[in-house]
Design a protein around this nucleic acid. Structure first.
Length: 595
RNA sequence: GCGCCCAUAGCUCAGGUGGAUAGAGCAUCAGCCUUCUAAGCUGGUGGUCGCUGGUUCGAGUCCAGCUGGGCGCACCA
């Protein structure tokens, strides 16, 4: 298919020497496979675009295709059989459709980055799954990817935790294994030390509002921690351990993993060096109130970046600076993506500006991928205030709703629990990718856990129906839809020969499906270019939708079908199953064979 | 007050580098299960793309102003 595009482009280039030739993808299959808008070239040549299109149409030809003028457009439309052969060859006879060869490009993706002693909320899902998809797609496109979890395991918040622990837990609940008498009851399945740490954190912030001097208490504890106080260190390590254990459970459930979990604390012994580097470059100067700052007015940023607080302790900017310097020296990356909420836009503008002043090498390599915050209908979520929706509650509710539908629609299904888990995750995760925009999301249960229409389960359903047909087809059809091994990004499917006759695919719905499958490589490149999962999710929906139409219009295993028709349709179905499974896999979503 | 982002159908949203009659889903209405999973398919209703100017052969897309929202603005992350 790429070769057809290239030769179309080459023909246009020789017909229109000196003109820039941009070949687009038409809006729908009826128009053709490739389109050339004639506006620009026509203007340069002083011609009418429609007339130019006519002229080109009569001049150019390509075997197996028609080149037609449609108003001001010149469209290349493959013959149905040629289109089918090209696509099926690419999809089932060759590995990893739409992928790219491994090449020397290193991409860092920093994502998830939860704060220790806080529970995962629905808000954390965004960074986690957007980051996961970006990492996976970049791998699929041949980049060397490092997945970094910049854990929030340092900072003043630990002062808060330490102070709160000393006040209300140390004497009567030191192991955090009892419920607090003063706290509201914890749901049965959430009774963990982490949850009680969270309660301590919330209480501290609530009481702090009435007694502002408690803030100094928290700061003092952080200073002790950063100063190496043994007790502070011991508690810190324990808080961290307790948190990581819970995080890991969530990551396992989401199928997310990392190449490095170097959190903020990891950079603690690198802070002094980072500060020295700033000093050596003459960038550090005293600011109001005794803090050490870097001025950024020359970069168009009025707010200076604070690098050391007045009490001499570090701040997150210091740790992000040290992390960036460390990553430069460790990974020699080409791009570093920070998948962090849009409320930190200014912070990253400052950070990137400081880095660029320090070392021009950073310019153009750093990129913040912001996303809109998740809000509740009542307003902003706040861990401190305790009005949050926990991620696990959303996941559990999704699974419960799926289970109820399975009991209603397919009560005989074996391994119900596993399938319900896969579909529930699919619903929640797919929703997040679909709505990947900088705009904030207002959380409502029915939206996030929708199971029909443009949803993950809709795509999963199309895949499951194909698998069902392949099973009934006998032979090794079903096995051909299975990856041969687990894999990082590109699923290894067995190679399948494309049948000699593809006449069973001349129905418009089959051709429309081929057209949507052909859009997958573009969608993947869009994900990479825009750092957004949306394009992939939308393309998978388009493929699933096109398959559903094909499925209802073209019987596959019909007894009256000629064997060639049956085989051609099975091959197209197989190709679709692979594309869907691969696409979902890149998004961190499983594709059950039955549902 | 300053800076960044957003505004598309009743609701929730898609609409690279300006270009083919502005697309989905939900909701609603009408059809479709004696053949491969109806979590589905087919069709209908529904839009002055916030407002006003401008650039252009051509603007949902670019520019300016306005209106209405979101986020941020020095020792939290």
């Amino acid at each position: 298919m790429e070769r057809v595009k290239a030769s179309f482009k080459a023909k246009l280039e020789s017909a229109l020497p000196g003109q820039e030739i941009i070949v687009e993808r038409p809006k729908s299959a009826e128009l053709g496979d490739f389109a050339f808008p004639c506006f620009r070239a026509a203007k340069a040549l002083g011609k009418n675009p429609a007339q130019l299109a006519q002229e080109l149409a009569s001049q150019l030809s390509l075997e197996g295709a028609e080149i037609l003028a449609a108003g001001p457009y010149l469209n290349l439309k493959l013959q149905g059989e040629t289109r089918a052969r090209l696509m099926l060859e690419a999809l089932v006879a060759h590995p990893a459709f739409g992928s790219a060869q491994p090449h020397d490009e290193t991409v860092l993706v920093e994502y998830s980055s939860p704060n220790i002693a806080k529970l995962f909320t629905i808000g954390h899902l965004r960074s986690t799954m957007i980051g996961h998809t970006l990492a996976q797609v970049n791998r699929y496109l041949g980049c060397r990817v490092w997945r970094l979890n910049h854990l929030g395991d340092w900072g003043t918040q630990f002062g808060t935790l330490l102070a709160a622990y000393k006040r209300w837990a140390e004497t009567d609940n030191p192991a955090l294994d009892q419920d607090f008498a003063w706290a509201e009851e914890i749901p049965e399945k959430r009774r963990t030390p982490l949850y009680r740490l969270f309660q301590l954190y919330v209480r501290f912030h609530q009481e702090e509002e009435a007694q502002p001097d408690m803030r100094a208490e928290a700061r003092t504890w952080f200073k002790k921690l950063e100063g190496g106080d043994a007790e502070a260190r011991r508690l810190w390590a324990w808080f961290r351990e307790v948190s990581l254990k819970e995080f890991q459970r969530i990551y396992d459930r989401l199928g997310v993993s990392f190449d490095a979990m170097d959190g903020e604390a990891f950079y603690e012994d690198k802070l002094a060096n980072a500060i020295d580097t700033l000093k050596a470059a003459n960038l550090l100067e005293p600011g109001d109130g005794g803090a050490q700052i870097v001025r950024l007015e020359d970069r168009g940023i009025q707010t200076p970046s604070i690098m050391l607080k007045a009490d001499g302790t570090s701040i997150y900017a210091t740790r992000d600076l040290a992390a960036a310097l460390y990553r430069r020296d460790t990974y020699h990356f080409d791009r570093c993506l920070y998948v962090v909420g849009s409320d930190q836009i200014l912070h990253f503008q400052q950070l990137f500006a400081v880095l660029a002043k320090l070392d021009p090498w950073f310019e153009g390599r750093m990129s913040h991928t912001p996303f809109g915050m998740v809000k509740l209908p009542e307003g902003k979520m706040s861990t401190r205030k305790g009005n949050v929706v926990f991620l696990e509650d959303v996941l559990d509710e999704a699974v419960a709703r799926v289970l109820a539908i399975i009991d209603e629609k397919n009560p005989e299904l074996h391994d119900k629990a596993r399938v319900a888990e896969q579909l529930g995750m699919g619903a929640v995760v797919f929703f997040d990718a679909l709505n990947d925009r900088v705009k904030p999301i207002t959380f409502t249960w029915d939206r996030v856990i929708a199971l029909d229409g443009d949803t993950g389960p809709y795509v999963q359903y199309a895949h499951a129906r194909i698998c069902s047909v392949l099973r009934k087809a006998g032979g090794d059809w079903a096995a051909m839809a299975q990856p041969m091994a687990s894999s990082e990004a590109a699923l290894p499917f067995p190679s399948q020969a494309v049948p000699a006759s593809l006449q069973g695919l001349d129905h418009p719905s089959a051709q429309a499906l081929l057209f949507e499958l052909a859009g997958l490589p573009d969608a993947l490149r869009t994900v990479q270019r825009e750092n957004m999962a949306t394009a992939l999710a939308r393309q998978l929906l388009a493929i699933a939708k096109a398959f559903s139409a094909f499925y209802t219009h073209c019987p596959i295993l019909w007894a009256e079908n000629a064997p060639e028709v049956r085989d051609a349709r099975l091959t197209l179905s197989l190709a679709t199953a692979r594309a869907l499974r691969q696409g979902l896999f890149l998004m961190g979503i499983q594709a059950p064979e039955e549902m």
